[in-house]
């Protein structure tokens, strides 16, 4: 059986302005199982940001339900939403959004800080995560001393520190050049291969192509919600060529992870069973049942 990371049921958002009401999201329904890697696409104004804000518990829906795991968060108050954000959700933003006055390790720990859980153990974990994203030698650097790609790595480490239900990435590669974009996407793929659920807003086909599934929005509706192969066939874009791994350890892991997806496993949106612990650095053992 598989666990649901997040489920939206007829989720909608209206912005009530003085003269009119904007129906930004007109009731969308979908599940994201644990371990999925979803791209949310759509033209400008289609409701991507609105949906992302709802999934990130930054905003409350006007109607509908939103379940994180089994908890309905649609009706939580501000403090409740804050607590959910600090415990259950990992954010990666387009503009990195690190805190200037904190160093790498401190930035990674911020979500824990608001759970009142900063101590020696969590610091060790933050250092581990920094190492995992390849910044083991930059622990006490401030954001100003890092490149864009490095800052985004810190943000990714930060998004994982609270062991969230899912990582929300909003145009996470939008500010990066193509080489760095590839590195960051590899990192996401590695995390996903370890079992992390990732939901990413993007407008680039090349980025979406490296996910498992694409949800396309239009005018506040879901236009299509397809596994990547079918989405590609329907919307006519090419799959990325898998780049040759360099002799870095993380790239090896990434290649292995990619091998799982490009080996013809089509990942459906129904059931996904992940064996093995998500903390394990071994190659995850993934069983996929396609029920269609």
């Amino acid at each position: 059986m598989s666990n649901i990371a997040v489920r939206a049921e007829n989720l909608g958002k209206d912005y009530v302005l003085k003269s009119e009401t904007v129906h930004a999201l007109r009731g969308v329904t979908f599940d994201v199982p644990e371990g999925d890697y979803v791209a949310i696409m759509g033209p400008s104004g289609s409701g991507k940001s609105t949906l992302l804000n709802l999934l990130g518990c930054l905003d409350r829906p006007s109607f509908g339900e939103l379940y994180l795991g089994t908890e309905n968060v649609a009706t939580l108050n501000d403090n409740g939403l804050s607590d959910i954000r600090s415990k259950r959700i990992g954010f990666v933003f387009q503009s990195y959004n690190l805190i200037q006055q904190l160093n790498v390790v401190e930035n990674i720990q911020v979500p824990l800080y608001y759970q009142g859980k900063v101590n020696r153990t969590t610091r060790k974990r933050a250092i581990e995560l920094a190492g995992k994203v390849g910044l083991g030698d930059r622990l006490d650097h401030r954001p100003q001393q890092l490149s864009g790609g490095q800052m985004q790595r810190v943000a990714i480490a930060r998004s994982m520190v609270n062991d969230p239900y899912y990582i929300l990435a909003d145009e996470a590669t939008g500010n990066l050049d193509s080489k760095t974009t590839d590195e960051i996407l590899c990192l996401f793929e590695e995390l996903n291969a370890e079992g992390k659920t990732i939901i990413m807003v993007t407008h680039e086909d090349e980025v979406a192509a490296r996910c498992r599934r694409v949800i396309r929005l239009r005018d506040g509706h879901i236009e299509s919600d397809l596994p990547i192969e079918q989405d590609r066939q329907k919307y006519h874009y090419s799959m990325p060529t898998t780049e040759q791994p360099e002799d870095e350890e993380e790239d090896v892991a990434v290649t292995q992870a990619q091998a799982v997806t490009s080996d013809g496993f089509s990942v459906g949106d129904d059931e996904l069973v992940i064996g093995g612990s998500s903390d394990s650095h071994d190659e995850p053992e993934i069983e996929v049942d396609i029920d269609e």
Partner: peptide, 16 residues
């Protein structure tokens, strides 16, 4: 303001 937004997104309550 931006920092406040980041902190709120990462789970800071208004009180914090």
């Amino acid at each position: 303001t931006r920092e406040i937004g980041i902190r709120r997104a990462l789970g800071a309550r208004q009180g914090a």
